[in-house]
Design a protein around this nucleic acid. Structure first.
Lengths: 249, 249
DNA sequence: CGGGTTATTGATGGTGTTCAAGGGGTGTGG
DNA sequence: CCACACCCCTTGAACACCATCAATAACCCG
């Protein structure tokens, strides 16, 4: 048994992300994103054990999944749609911690309460695992535990990269870096002009990048004018990936 | 078996941090920080198994432990001294990811190469585990695996808090928040005026907080003038913990 | 259409950076 | 033990980037 996680395992398929009406899975066997999710650590004959503790839920845009401080009765795997994760300051300032897409796991820490809130940006479907039962299953399935740790480690690396972005990058670098990383999660090959769906609003991007909505808007406008990007409804088309990459350095 | 980690387990003792000449441990049985470290997941009779794959190393100030991109032959537990973890940008910009103190684990991800570098700020001692052998041990010791994941989750939470700081906090809030969290790691009770050792320089604090050395210096000077802090060699004395806390909001 | 939300664009200003100079501590060597 | 050099830190002044304030425009759904 190895603890290494291949990029493929942690990546997401373009298919699962890009179809907005994804996530109609009646059972784990037929689940298209299983191999990208925690459940992928289990063999097919073990799936009934996880099906026993899972509940599929359907969400509407703007619906809250849980809030900071809530007791973590359940932990989640996203199977369809995009989720916004955020922390709030008492005075209204907000930091978006990340965006979760199909295959992503929420509640890695297994702790009793959540330290951030989660809201749907789009319609979506989510597998909710009873937290206590899930941790119980972990003690019986080392492979699941290993996978969970690999995912947590991967998230930690992403968080550190985000610290560099927030601490040391300029506004245009932040926006470019965001678009590149979002593009990678959408599984579009680098170096090719592609259309990126952006299910989050400008304010969400701003709160993710530690900027204001005006700065994000201005920066994108500049990229549009410079023909690095093309403005399309609910997204952008990357016209010049090379120059976009060059912005980040 | 529970996966929850009590604050005590993840906290650090003031004793182990504050003695600068800590870390003279001949074996794991007598190791004073074991209960705060990963190794604490093992029973005493299991210690020989980890002693078999560990090597104690002694470091001098400014010495490099490893650099970004290096192959991770070993992973580490700090037993004495303070370590600076950082990522560098090609143009010289630098983000300090964190400071590791006795009990902390470095190399949580178990991946083949490091994504950040680690340097000693002080003299120190470190337990170096052969990475391959350590991951092998993990498959045999579920408790060790669970502990590792709990630590990684805890680090992830800290990283998210740091994102809020870097993305949404003002300079004085950042400095105050840093001093408070550093104080907690030094295990000084809140609400009491205490002397905090600061083994890192102003530039390190600046690169941790996403500021310049001048801003850190100016902010500290303001706190000194306002009698919130008292300037002491290689550290600060917290005169008014309440007002320091009030700065952060 | 029309009302509300979200995004864009412009003008102005503030927080923190940059540039520059001086101060203070530490360690070393005479 | 003092002198000096070096490094780090502090402080000041000017500037820049991004935030704030403000108004308009585009979009979305009803």
């Amino acid at each position: 048994m190895t603890l290494d996680v291949t990029p493929e395992l942690l990546g997401r398929s373009a298919v699962s992300n890009c179809r907005s009406n994804a996530g109609e899975y009646q059972n784990c066997v037929g689940c298209g994103i299983r191999r990208f999710a925690v459940c992928g650590a289990l063999a097919e004959n073990e799936l009934p054990e996880i099906e026993a503790i899972v509940q599929t839920r359907r969400y509407e845009p703007r619906q809250t999944i849980f809030q900071e401080g809530d007791t973590a009765h359940a932990i989640y795997t996203i199977t369809g749609g995009t989720v916004r994760l955020q922390r709030d300051l008492p005075d209204g300032r907000r930091q978006v911690i990340g965006f979760a897409v199909p295959g992503d796991f929420i509640g890695l820490s297994l702790e009793e309460s959540f330290t951030f809130s989660a809201d749907m940006l789009t319609k979506g479907t989510i597998c909710a695992f009873d937290r206590t039962k899930f941790t119980g299953l972990l003690t019986k399935k080392p492979a699941l535990m290993h996978r969970l740790h690999a995912i947590a480690s991967h998230e930690l690396g992403i968080a550190q990269e985000q610290m560099v972005l927030l601490g040391r990058r300029r506004a245009d670098e932040r926006v470019a870096a965001f678009l590149m990383s979002w593009g990678q999660r959408m599984r579009h090959p680098n170096g090719v002009a592609v259309t990126l769906p952006l299910p989050m609003g400008r304010q969400d991007i701003a709160d993710y990048l530690g900027l204001t909505i005006e700065t994000v808007s201005r920066t994108l406008s500049r990229f549009f004018k410079e023909r690095i990007l093309l403005d399309v409804p609910h997204g952008v088309r990357v016209l010049d990936p090379e120059r976009l990459r060059a912005v980040v350095v």
